[in-house]
C-alpha cells in the first residue's frame, strides 16, 4: 500500500461508481414520476366527479341519477364483518404459533400454508368461496359469504404481521412476568398483546386496504349490484347480495360506460388507501413514541 492510499485525504470517484449512481437515480426518478402521474391522472379526472349527491344517494334509474351510498355501506359492512372474523382468528393463530405450538413441524406447515395463501390470485378465492360458502354452506351470494371469503384472503397477512409483532416483544418481558408467577395466559393478556398491538393494528389496516381494493372475488360471492339502500338491520342486510366500491367501479367503468363515475370511485378508493397507509405510519410512530 502506498502512502497516498493509506492517507484519508484526496477524492477520486471511480467512473463505474458514478455510472451506477446515475442509473439508479434515473430508475428512482422513473418510478416516482410514474406513480405521481398515475395518481395525479386519477385525481384530476375523478375529483370533479365526487359530489355530495354521489356520496349520499342511491342510484335512481327513473330520474337517471347515480349515487354510490349503497356501495359505501356494503363496503363498510364487509370490512366490519371480515375484521370480526379475521382478527380473532388471525391474532389467536399467531399467538398459538408463537407461544404455544412447540412442534416445529406443525409450525412450519402452518407458516408454509399461510405464505402460499397470500400468493394465490384472488379469483381462485372467489371460486372457492362461491362453491364452499354460497353453495355448500347455502349462504347464497351475500355480503356474509363475501366477508368469509375475504377472511381467508386476509388471514395470512394478519397472522404473519401479528406473529412478527409478537416475536418482537423482548424475551425479558416474558421472563419478568413468569418470574413474578404470571401464568402464560396472564402474560399474553397483559404484556404480549398490548405490546404487539401496534403490529396488530398495522395488520388490520393493511387488511382493510385489501378488502377495499378487492373486486374479482367479491363479484362472484357477494354479488354485483348496489342499487338500494339497506332496508333491514345489519344482520338482515348481510344475508343479501351487494357490491362494494371496487366492484361498482368495475361495473360503472366497464359495463355501463359511465367513465366519470368510475374515475370518481377510483379517486375515492385512492384517498381511502392513502389515508389508511398514513394512519399505519402514524399509529406505528405513536406507539413507538409511547414505549420510549
Amino acid at each position: 500500500m502506498n502512502r497516498a492510499m493509506s492517507g484519508i485525504t484526496g477524492k477520486r470517484k471511480r467512473p463505474a461508481d458514478a455510472l451506477l449512481y446515475l442509473v439508479i437515480g434515473l430508475f428512482t426518478a422513473a418510478v416516482f414520476a410514474m406513480t405521481m402521474y398515475f395518481a395525479g391522472y386519477i385525481f384530476v379526472k375523478g375529483c370533479a366527479g365526487i359530489t355530495f349527491a354521489l356520496l349520499t344517494t342511491a342510484p335512481n334509474p327513473i330520474i337517471r341519477t347515480i349515487g354510490i351510498l349503497p356501495a359505501i355501506i356494503n363496503t363498510a359492512y364487509i370490512i366490519l364483518l371480515t375484521l370480526v372474523f379475521a382478527v380473532p382468528i388471525g391474532v389467536g393463530g399467531a399467538v398459538y404459533i408463537n407461544e404455544y405450538a412447540n412442534k416445529r413441524k406443525l409450525i412450519r406447515v402452518i407458516e408454509f400454508t399461510t405464505e402460499t395463501l397470500s400468493g394465490i390470485p384472488s379469483i381462485i378465492f372467489g371460486v372457492f368461496g362461491y362453491v364452499f360458502f354460497c353453495v355448500f354452506l347455502n349462504l347464497k351470494v351475500s355480503l356474509i359469504a363475501g366477508a368469509l371469503t375475504l377472511t381467508i384472503m386476509v388471514l395470512p397477512t394478519i397472522i404473519r404481521t401479528a406473529q412478527e409483532a409478537l416475536k418482537a416483544v423482548p424475551l425479558s418481558y416474558r421472563e419478568g412476568a413468569a418470574g413474578l408467577g404470571a401464568s402464560k395466559w396472564y402474560m399474553i393478556r397483559t404484556i404480549l398483546l398490548p405490546n404487539a398491538s401496534s403490529g396488530i393494528i398495522t395488520a388490520v389496516i393493511l387488511s382493510v386496504g385489501r378488502i377495499v381494493g378487492e373486486s374479482a372475488a367479491l363479484l362472484l360471492v357477494a354479488g354485483g349490484s348496489a342499487m338500494y339502500l339497506p332496508k333491514g338491520s345489519f344482520f338482515e342486510q348481510i344475508k343479501n347480495s351487494g357490491s362494494t366500491l371496487a366492484v361498482e367501479l368495475y361495473r360503472y367503468a366497464y359495463s355501463r360506460g359511465e367513465n366519470e363515475v368510475g374515475f370518481a370511485i377510483a379517486a375515492l378508493l385512492l384517498i381511502i388507501v392513502i389515508g389508511l397507509n398514513l394512519s399505519v405510519k402514524l399509529i406505528g410512530k405513536r406507539l413507538k413514541g409511547g414505549a420510549k
Binding site: 423482548p170 425479558s172 418481558y173 421472563e175 419478568g176 412476568a177 413468569a178 418470574g179 413474578l180 408467577g181 404470571a182 401464568s183 397483559t190 404484556i191 398490548p194 405490546n195 414505549a291
Partner: peptide, 18 residues
C-alpha cells in the same frame, strides 16, 4: 405461581414492562 411468589427473581438486564 405460588412458588414464584415466595421465590422472586431479578434478572440480568433491567426488564420493567412497558
Amino acid at each position: 405461581t405460588k412458588l414464584r411468589k415466595k421465590v422472586g427473581m431479578v434478572f440480568q438486564s433491567p426488564n420493567p414492562f412497558p
